[in-house]
């Protein structure tokens, strides 16, 4: 009886702890949403409370100042390009290393994952120089290729781990049936690895969309700069009010938030599958 009672209390404490963390996780977002709906004077009068009246002027103004449609387009092109290229290249390496008789495969795999230890911050100037020498500074392909290269190590690692669990006999059977390498890779392995691929794609989408340093340096002040660069510039302008910045922030974070909420189930099952070791 006593034990059951304490278990009950434990349960309440547990839920209480979870609620506290959930509030901490959500409050900054709510604060920003609420701020973005206030007028400038409304925010000055009462920065913390709920707005007396709701205004969407800040969103209109943010769209105008930041040339939002163009920034959104730039972010979509570079993120999707980098994501597709990175996952494809990682898939090919993972297949070669785990499923082909390929001498030196281990060395290739090691080389790719070792590049994980080269952070973009450490090599940012020579990286910028290299992109400049390739004539890709301020161009979509420059950022796309850089994204692909930086997404490669983790992608290769995850997919190799996943492909490895597919029994070799399955591959051999398909090969005996006359299936070529690409058929095996895209018709047999890819469907099996869908959860891992989905999780990887979402992971890449999130960091590429959200990255600041690479687009800041590669795209700089060009018209091809991404949304995050635009947001960082907006917050640096001295005549910008908190409600206006907040509106810009909400627009910047909304696409990823939507993608996450839509693909939440795939992400979770992919994450579950990815660690199935």
């Amino acid at each position: 009886m006593n034990r059951r009672y304490s278990a009950q209390i434990g349960r309440y404490l547990l839920v209480f702890a979870l609620v506290v963390v959930a509030v901490a996780a959500l409050y900054p977002l709510l604060f920003t949403v609420v701020s973005s709906l206030k007028t400038q004077t409304g925010f000055a009068r009462d920065p913390l409370g709920l707005p007396s009246g709701i205004t969407f002027d800040n969103y209109v103004e943010a769209f105008k100042r930041m040339n939002m449609p163009r920034l959104l387009l730039n972010s979509i092109i570079t993120t999707v390009g980098g994501l597709v290229l990175s996952v494809l290249a990682a898939m090919l390496v993972a297949y070669t290393v785990t499923k082909l008789r390929f001498r030196g495969g281990k060395l290739v795999f090691l080389f790719i994952i070792v590049t994980l230890t080269i952070p973009s911050q450490a090599i940012i100037y020579p990286l910028y120089q290299t992109v400049l020498d390739l004539g890709m500074s301020g161009e979509y392909q420059g950022l796309i290729l850089a994204y692909a290269a930086f997404g490669l190590p983790l992608g290769t690692y995850q997919l190799a781990g996943y492909f490895q669990q597919v029994p070799d006999e399955l591959i051999e059977a398909a090969r005996v049936d006359g299936a070529g390498h690409f058929t095996i890779l895209f018709r047999l392995l890819a469907p099996i690895a869908t959860p891992a691929l989905a999780a990887l794609a979402i992971f890449n989408f999130v960091w590429m969309w959200n990255d600041l340093l690479l687009p800041l340096v590669i795209m700089g002040g060009s018209d091809s700069k991404t949304l995050m660069v635009g947001v960082s510039l907006l917050s640096g302008q001295y005549d910008v009010s908190v409600p206006l910045v907040s509106a810009g922030l909400i627009v910047a974070l909304l696409p990823v938030l939507i993608i996450y909420l839509v693909f939440q189930r795939q992400l979770i099952s992919g994450a579950l599958a990815g660690s199935g070791k």
């Binding site: 090919l92 390929f102 495969g105 080269i118 100037y125 020579p126 290299t130 290269a149």
Partner: peptide
Amino acid sequence: EWWFGALLVLPALALAFTFKLVPLVRGVTT
């Protein structure tokens, strides 16, 4: 099969080489 494998790992190697190794080496010289 080896040549085929080499072809498959080429894009990844090219990416890692151009955007990671080359900048690192240039960083060292600079």
